[in-house]
């Protein structure tokens, strides 16, 4: 190995090159970085009237890729239909009352909790708000979670 010799001129040269490279990398990174939109109630998905949803039932919204679950106590939970294992779309099996992934056989209950692996995380959920007695779902901002807990359920 040659001995590394750095004088002032070399140091500044390398320093400037590194700075320029870093800037370039940063610009590229910002170019590729996905744009995150702020939550905007205008862009929420209007799922329908609160009174329309019966207690203890699942309502599929295929085009928006979520299931709206009205719990037996009247709470609302909007579950993403993206499997947390590798991103396939889960289907609701009404007979077994569970969401099943066709790709690798993961299964989730109606609250999105894992019933059988390989998935390890509960299904993502979307924030729900109520306005003029209508259910609005923020479909642009899925929320990651490891486990289901009751604070994720929204009540009118």
């Amino acid at each position: 190995m040659k001995k590394l010799k750095i004088n002032r001129r070399k140091f500044f040269k390398r320093f400037l090159y590194s700075l320029v490279t870093l800037q370039f990398v940063y610009i590229l990174f910002r170019l590729f970085k996905p744009q995150k939109e702020a939550a905007d109630i205008e862009k929420f998905y209007d799922a329908g009237d609160v009174s329309f949803f019966q207690k203890g039932k699942m309502y599929p919204f295929g085009s928006e890729q979520f299931y709206l679950h009205r719990l037996t106590d009247g709470g609302f939970l909007a579950l993403s239909s993206r499997c947390t294992h590798l991103g396939c779309t889960v289907q609701f099996n009404a007979n077994n009352k569970r969401l099943e992934c066709p790709c690798h056989a993961s299964a989730f209950n109606t609250n999105g909790e894992v019933l059988s692996p390989p998935a390890t995380r509960a299904l993502d959920y979307y924030p729900v708000v109520f306005k003029n007695n209508r259910v609005l779902v923020d479909v642009n901002h899925p929320v990651r979670r490891n486990k289901h807990d009751n604070s994720q359920v929204k009540y009118v």
């Binding site: 996905p34 590798l86 396939c88 790709c103 899925p142």
Partner: peptide, 30 residues
Amino acid sequence: WAVTIMTNLLSYIPLFGEGLADLIRDGDTV
């Protein structure tokens, strides 16, 4: 679906996997 599966495989990399997958996909889905 092949690309969905593959980019989700990347997201299992600890710490920066999720960010890397989002960077490649430009968002959390294909």
